[in-house]
Structures are given as C-alpha cells and as structure tokens.
Design a protein around this nucleic acid. Structure first.
Lengths: 196, 196
DNA sequence: GTCTATATGTTGATAGAC
DNA sequence: GTCTATCAACATATAGAC
C-alpha cells in the first residue's frame, strides 16, 4: 500500500507543476520510475488512477482546510477557511487545472468519475450548510440568509473563479471569495496559517 | 458564406442535444451532410470550427440577453437579464457542456482557443461593470459596492453553477443567480421573455 | 511486480481524384 | 467543393515473459 501512496504523491507533484495535458499515464509512470503497464498494474484504469489522485489531494486539504470549515466556531473562521483554501489553490495551478478539466469531463453520467464528483459536491455543500446554519442559530449570521443557497454558491463561485484565473492569472481569487463573505455580512479572518 | 452559417447552426443544434463527447468533427460532418474532409475544408482545424461555433452562439445570445445587460436602465433589468440568460442555458445542457469543457481545455496558453476565452471573459466583465457603475452613479445601486468585483463574481458564479448543474440537474441555476442579486440588494425582474 | 511488445480504438489532418 | 482513402499520432489497455 505504501507504494500506491508514493505513486499518488509523486503524481500530485508532477501535475501541480506541469498541468493536466502532460498528465498522461505514460508521463506519470516515467516520473515515478515505472513503465506505463507497471503503473496501471496498481490502478487498473486511467480514470481510477485520477480519482485516487483527487481523493488523496482531498484528504490532505481536508485536514488543512476542510476541518476548519466544519469546525468553524465563528463567522470569521468559516469565511477565513474558504479564503485560505483558495489562496492555497492559487499556488498549484496545475492541480486546479486537473480538477477543472477532469470535473468537466466527468459531468457526463457514463464517465467513471461521475459519481465521485457528484458526491464530492454534495458532501461539501452539506458540511458548509450545516456549519452556516449552526452559526445562524447562535446569532452570528443574519437570520434572513439561506445556508443551503450560500453553501452551494460559494463552491460555484470558487469553481468559476478558478476557471477565470486559469485564463488570466491576474484574477485574484482569494480577494473575490473574501468579498463574497463580506456581502453576506461576514468578515473573514485570514491571517496566519492553519495549524495542520 | 451562407454555407458556413448553415453548418454552424446545425452543429449548434447537434451539440445542444447530444453533448460535447459526440461532437467530433466526423460526427458533426455527418449531421450536416458532409464528409469530415468536406467540413474541415471550411474551417481548417477542429479548434477553429469550435471557436466559430461559440462565436455564433454568442452572437445570438448577445442579441437576446447581452444587450439587455448593457442597456439595463434599472437595477431590476440587469439582474433579470442574468437570470433569464441562465434560465435559457438550462435548456441546452449539451451546449453548456461544450462551453465548460472547451473553456477548461483552452485554459492553457498554447491552446488555439485561449485568446478567444480570455477576451470573452474580459469583455463580459467590462460591459457588466460599466453598467453597474452607471446604475450606481444614478443611485440605484448601493454606493459601497464594487462594480468590478461584482461583475467578475457573477460570471464566476454562473460558470460554477453550470459545473454543478451538469453533475446534478436538480441544481437550480437561475434561483441561485437571482439570490446573488438579492444579496447585492437588487431584486431581479424575471418575468416575460426578452423581445428578440 | 515489472517489463516489453502489441492490440485496439479514436481522432484530426492531408493527398489527390472528380 | 466535395469525396474517398489513408496517414499519423496518441493513449489506453492487455498478453505474456521474466
């Protein structure tokens, strides 16, 4: 199992650096010191490999940023967690490209990774909506707002910002996510790095 | 020239119906009653063909929705124009898929369609920001708001909503765009169909 | 487990006849 | 302009040896 994880971590680095187009099975195999067949021995198909790559990345980000969202005790915390997540993504363009392209390809129902993305979106929305609702019940978020809608919107906003940012790196993703939360009435606390 | 337009319109229909994966040059050629070579005779390469398809679509939408944004005389108008645009997009899933996938592929600088998308985003943002600023000067939009940021955000929101909607058709894109404008302090007037 | 070699399928692009 | 035929390039997947 250690070998699988080693492969995934190397693939993650290569993709973050070189982008999605270079991320063929052959290319990733070379980078990890295996032949194409050798790599597929571990993952079966390309789509399975890529889903595992995304899953591994999610595990990492979950520890660093996702937990901060779910465990947010204050309005500033949850807003800040999203800003930090996006700021982090801006450091790994290749990976943002992987996510955007693979997600758009998987939007067709027959695609092997379709269920992965559908579930991922649903879970992300639920966790965020739950946290927002909790804050609302504690009086830290305006009672007139709809947590479900806000949760869906913030992920849509992030995906769309990533798309524009990929075309134009001058687009400041974190700035716009912070502005979104300000519109909602939350001032993100973005200072410092998450303890993770 | 009539032939080119005929080809583009047919391609538009086929893609709106059957999605992006089916949209190979061969497939589109069949639908329009030409051989693959016959079709490429008009457009040279696949990427050029697809850019022309998107351009043609934009011309149409521009007449029906884009003008409504640029010419919006009231806050309700501009918000409503976006809601109607998104509502319209929800009728043509295949085309939304084409846009999303092609845009994500073209995010690399070497891609033949990269300039098209970059310019398209820039122009859309500018027109929208200009209109919002005008409304703001007339006192119809809260003076504390930033037109540039809002313009960029609404397009990001739409792109992201499309991504989620492609994975889960239950996502109500128009509802969330309307909610965005409400957060901003504008109530969209969505009734009726645009004259055009 | 890992490799080499190869099958298979798909697509976009081109040459050349009509 | 349009077709047929073919090429060339990939990329994934698999068979079989070691």
């Amino acid at each position: 199992m250690a070998k699988r994880e080693e492969i995934l971590d190397t693939a993650l680095e290569v993709i973050a650096r070189d982008g999605y187009s270079r991320a063929t099975v052959r290319e990733l195999a070379n980078s990890v010191g295996l032949s194409q067949a050798g790599l597929l021995h571990y993952f079966g198909t390309k789509e399975q490999l890529f889903v595992e790559i995304l899953r591994r990345r999610d595990e990492r980000d979950q520890r660093a940023y996702g937990e901060a969202v779910g465990a947010a005790g204050t309005a500033a915390d949850i807003a800040g967690a999203f800003v930090r997540l996006v700021r982090h993504n801006a450091q790994v363009p290749g990976f943002v490209q992987l996510f955007t392209r693979f997600s758009s390809e998987a939007s067709e129902e027959q695609h092997p990774a379709h269920a992965f993305f559908r579930d991922r979106y649903a879970v992300s929305r639920t966790i965020t909506a739950d946290t927002l609702r909790k804050l609302q019940e504690e009086g830290r978020l305006s009672p007139g707002l709809d947590p479900e809608r806000l949760a869906l919107m913030v992920f849509a906003l992030i995906d769309g910002l990533q798309m524009q940012w990929l075309h134009d790196p001058d687009v400041d993703m974190a700035d716009h996510v912070a502005y979104f939360w300000e519109l909602v009435g939350l001032t993100p606390r973005t200072g410092g790095t998450p303890a993770g």
